[in-house]
Design a protein around this nucleic acid. Structure first.
Lengths: 259, 259
DNA sequence: CGGACATTTGACAAGCTTCAAGAGAAGTGG
DNA sequence: CCACTTCTCTTGAAGCTTGTCAAATGTCCG
């Protein structure tokens, strides 16, 4: 049942200073005092297995996490069961912020793989803003960044056709994984790939397509030699073509905050 | 050319205390000290005419505004011109926050009607977080709230059909306008309506539909007696039916922050 | 009155969804 | 260890929703 992705095989260390995420170079540096605060702000760590619900769509629990390892996703469903995946969550991302301010606009969060989490103190967010404004600024930054992902995805669902949507998703996720240092090269040093634990139903639900059409579109791109997706690993075989199809070009990677 | 919506006919007053938005009851109260800070944070006011670009999609200017009167929208376009409206902006909403943190993920902002704005000091946002953490918290709140709108819209574009999309849009915008106190009742006291300055192209671009299909869908809902949209005013004639179609039900209105 | 723009309608084409069914992989229990 | 179930991926066929093309109407404004 549980798919261990070995993204960062372990559970978060007791000391934030030893955090493997902070060593990737993908995140902004924080001052020692702030790091110390984050460590006290963190109430505990937790592990959840693949497929489990981290936040229930109907009854949110008000908890705030950082995803330390594994994949998850945010979603909303209509009452007849149609589901839309809003965005995928990768290591380093803050989970549950929207709930703090929930206007009733609810969403659920589900683990794709086994995940480990840093769980923050309930109701501690205000303390964070008050005592460490720079961290408050970072939280806003993270929130705005996530909104940017949803913006992109809305453009995709609203205005791209099926082929463009799939190309977009492959590029987008590959880039995010790459910047986390999760790209791996095999023995002969030729073939770079990333772990890719989502199934076609996840892809369909993210892109606003049916499962069948998603499958056929993936198949087409594969036959064109643009990508390969086997054994839970994704390889991009023609990045330029994918970028052109998706009308999505790489942006210089920039460090982002991490709580 | 310019459509004056008379939402709040005037330009923002010199004193934030006299702000007509704050008197609507739609926004959270702020302490006098914070209000004073907001007043100093505001560098100027500005007016722009309908159709003008407030923030250019390609070259953002880093400015931060609050929309005081009128309608605007955020959008992204593909290189071949396909446009997606991400969300509509109504009085009281903060504009330009994402730019502060822009990861390259750009979007433009365009005025639908004549608008008036409170323009904040460039680079003053950090001061706000540092000296008034509660306002920083509010900014995050506003950001999360806007993300909630985009989330809803993504569910709409990804998983609702044309009829459901249109019903959703009508309900959603009506509710937002209503909570701002912008609903008006005509002479005989029977007919409530709101100003509705967007055209069918805006609706199509927001919902991810073609112009023609949007027209046909609107027509169908109108013939069913669910709504009426004439002379730039929207009346909902069968709210229950629209809610059912859209699978969208009212949430208790909650005060939100205002900068 | 002419020109620009928004709305409306019909006809046709295309893209995507739904239905149906089979193949392969993986886990379960007798 | 093998039958059995379950889940994911795959493919074909048919139908419906939505997009595209084209053109007419109406309105506003100079």
């Amino acid at each position: 049942m549980s798919k261990d992705t070995a993204l960062f095989a372990t559970v978060p260390p007791a000391q934030c200073q030893a955090c493997r995420l902070r060593q990737t170079g993908a995140f902004t540096a924080v001052k020692p005092k702030e790091l110390a605060f984050i460590e006290t702000f963190r109430a505990s760590t937790a592990s959840k297995s693949a497929g489990s619900t981290l936040i229930h769509e109907q009854k949110p629990n008000g908890k705030l996490f950082t995803l330390y390892s594994g994949w998850a996703f945010r979603y909303k469903t209509l009452s007849d069961g149609r589901r839309q995946i809003l965005n995928f969550l990768l290591p380093g991302e803050l989970i549950g912020l929207q709930q703090e301010f929930a206007d009733g606009a609810m969403h659920g969060i589900e683990a794709v793989t086994d995940v480990s989490l840093c769980v923050f103190k309930r109701d501690g967010l205000w303390d964070l803003f008050r005592h460490h404004p720079s961290l408050g600024y970072d939280v806003t930054w993270m929130s705005a960044r996530e909104e940017g992902f949803v913006d992109d995805n809305l453009l995709t669902a609203g205005r791209r056709n099926a082929t463009e949507r799939v190309a977009m998703l492959l590029m987008h996720l590959y880039r995010r994984l790459e910047r986390l240092g999760l790209e791996r090269t095999d023995a002969d040093g030729l073939d770079a790939s990333v772990e890719f634990p989502i199934n076609q139903q996840h892809i369909a639900d993210n892109l606003g397509l049916s499962l069948v059409h998603t499958n056929k579109t993936l198949r087409r791109l594969h036959k064109l030699g643009l990508h390969d997706l086997t054994d839970g690993r994704l390889r991009l075989l023609n990045t330029k073509a994918l970028e052109r199809i998706a009308d999505y070009y790489d942006t210089p990677l920039k460090r982002v905050p991490l709580l």
